[in-house]
Design a protein around this nucleic acid. Structure first.
Lengths: 187, 187
DNA sequence: TCATTTTAGTTTCGTTTGAAACTGTTGCAA
DNA sequence: TTGCAACAGTTTCAAACGAAACTAAAATGA
């Protein structure tokens, strides 16, 4: 059943004559990996976020920061950005919200005053302690849809895909802007 | 190797002697499914979006609409929303952008004048014809990281997870505890 | 029939986002 | 030293978003 293949005959479709829809490559969104990933990730994130947003009044970025600092460690905003895969703007904003709500403490670094050292407050650690079981429970509820073997497969697949996706993302944009045949541009 | 399990108890090496951190559940973001899905989906979507945003000046929602109407069909905004998994507001806005850039045509329905019938213009169909091969190529580049068997597995796993996630999302929120103040004690 | 509810889609409003510009700090090198 | 590039974070600004309110057109039903 998984062998449902997509018509992959993209090669000869470049004709502008557009007459024969026969060999026009088609794309079914519901089978298209980027779409599927996006929808799934959204469903999962939103469901989870609702659980803790209501309860603790924190957003996804704040939750992520709490997650990486939850062990009580101290780190810089840049390091948080790396570990949470958020960009520095997002981290900066989340931190200022958290400063206001007393979830985080910022101290100026001694050696390098550009880097601020960030640590969770006890209040945030308490949230962490409450939220983690919720999060793990939800994760388990989702993965309950899979057998043990499948969960291992999933782990492997996601890692592989992420590695490849990172690689492709790092690839510089096609060097030639290829404006030739700009068939769609009107202004 | 893929069966690396998550250590469900914190790494006991908590330097603080404070209380009993021994059995405090920990969560490593990099192994947490919602996070992994979110990062992967983002990487993939963004990389792909860059390919066509630059080239055609369309956004992700617009691309999705083009994708579902690319066969030349006509459908209502509501149907588009369903098929693209976007909400009606998002669809409405994407459509008005597309009307401005002459990518779509809106006709009032005969039988039901609430429903507008939407069809792509030739210009949009041309974009579709160009974008689909790009999109499929990108998808293949990503899935090249997987064996044939693994691609089939991925298909299965994603479907299962989506089904479960939908089911959990539909579940009514736990009887709103909705504590207004101090859901978390400070000490 | 006329009032009410439901459905389709749009608008509004406050928030969130991302890219780019900006501030302040450090490292480096002439 | 000074001068400048690189770095860490923040701010700005316009676009994008989501929830809820809104308009308009069916459907329901009394």
């Amino acid at each position: 059943m998984p062998s449902a293949r997509r018509p992959r005959s993209a090669s000869s479709a470049s004709s502008k004559s557009a007459s024969g829809p026969a060999d026009r490559p088609a794309l079914h969104l519901t089978r298209f990996l980027p779409y599927r990933l996006s929808v799934l990730a959204n469903t999962v994130s939103h469901t989870l976020a609702k659980l803790y947003e209501k309860r603790f009044g924190i957003t996804i970025p704040e939750w992520r920061i709490i997650a990486v600092l939850g062990g009580g460690e101290t780190m810089s905003a840049g390091e948080i950005a790396q570990r949470t895969a958020m960009d520095k703007v997002q981290v900066s904003r989340a931190i200022s919200r958290m400063l206001e709500s007393a979830l985080i403490i910022r101290e100026s670094g001694d050696t390098d005053r550009r880097k601020a050292l960030l640590t969770l407050t006890p209040k945030a650690l308490a949230i962490y302690a409450e939220i983690v079981p919720m999060a793990l429970t939800y994760e388990e509820e989702v993965t309950d849809a899979l057998s043990i073997d499948e969960r291992a497969q999933l782990d492997t697949l996601l890692s592989r895909l992420q590695a490849r996706a990172d690689q492709l993302a790092a690839r510089p944009a096609p060097i030639a802007p290829k404006m030739e045949a700009a068939p769609v541009r009107e202004d």
